[in-house]
Design a binder for these strands. Structure first.
Length: 225
DNA sequence: GAGTGATCATCT
DNA sequence: AGATGATCACTC
């Protein structure tokens, strides 16, 4: 077992730690870290992600930054079924709905977060107890030209609609790789956005998510090599 | 409320 | 069965 708590000093060290976890059931990792193991994720949706953050020494917190800012790496766990297909979309970051005039893809939060991602697959069906799910081989990924092009097209299209006051028209069907969906504590959570007439409206906070077809493809591209 | 970690619950 | 829209826990 690698040393928890210590922050990795280099990307290679981080990757080594992640590789040492491969094959381990989540319950074993949790026990080593003195963490409770829930029977299901219904009330602990972030349990797996937070367990891996703790194990790999990621900075906890709610700052809109990468998990390892000094390394330029974002950590993401991704649930896979037995066929290595993603069971869920991947949350990237919240979407700005106001003051977006000067934003560009190059400086966007989406591009920053996805510029380098350490993917930690977690294998297990939805009905499998979290503790029994297995940690898979990690993948350090940077979007290739085609992937970045796709992400950029989607981001620009979605952001244009938002800037035009059409956020309420955007559904999860927009975009090939990236999609916009609600991201909130519940349906009563509201925030300001631009309305159809250029005025302010109240709407649900939104987040950018990677579609499963995109993450499935990027995982396949690497693991089939 | 806004951000982090995400999966749940329901509809098609 | 897979995707969409809704929701859970926690921190600040």
């Amino acid at each position: 077992m690698n040393n928890p708590i210590l922050r990795p000093e280099s990307v290679s060290q981080l990757l080594e730690h992640a590789q040492e976890l491969a094959g381990l059931p989540l319950a074993a990792l949790a026990h080593n870290l003195n963490q409770p193991v829930p029977d299901n994720l219904r009330r602990d949706k972030g349990w797996i992600g937070q367990l891996l953050e703790l194990s790999l020494g990621a900075s906890a917190g709610s700052k809109p930054e990468q998990d390892f800012p000094e390394l330029g790496v974002e950590l993401k766990t991704i649930p896979l079924d037995a066929a290595a297909r993603p069971l869920e979309t991947t949350f990237v970051c919240v979407a700005p709905l106001l003051n977006i005039a000067g934003l560009s893809w190059e400086t966007s939060n989406v591009r920053n977060k996805l510029s380098r991602v350490l993917w930690i697959p977690v294998i297990g069906e939805r009905d499998m107890p979290p503790g029994e799910r297995l940690i898979g081989q990690p993948l350090l990924w940077t979007p290739n030209e085609e992937e970045e092009w796709l992400l950029r097209q989607d981001w620009e299209e979605i952001m244009e609609l938002i800037s035009l006051g059409r956020v309420q028209e955007i559904t999860a069907r927009h975009g090939q790789a990236l999609q916009l969906r609600p991201k909130a504590a519940n349906g009563r959570a509201l925030t300001d956005a631009i309305g159809p007439d250029g005025n302010y409206i109240q709407t649900r906070p939104r987040g950018f998510y990677l579609k499963t077809s995109f993450t499935a493809a990027l995982l396949a591209r690497h693991f089939m090599l």
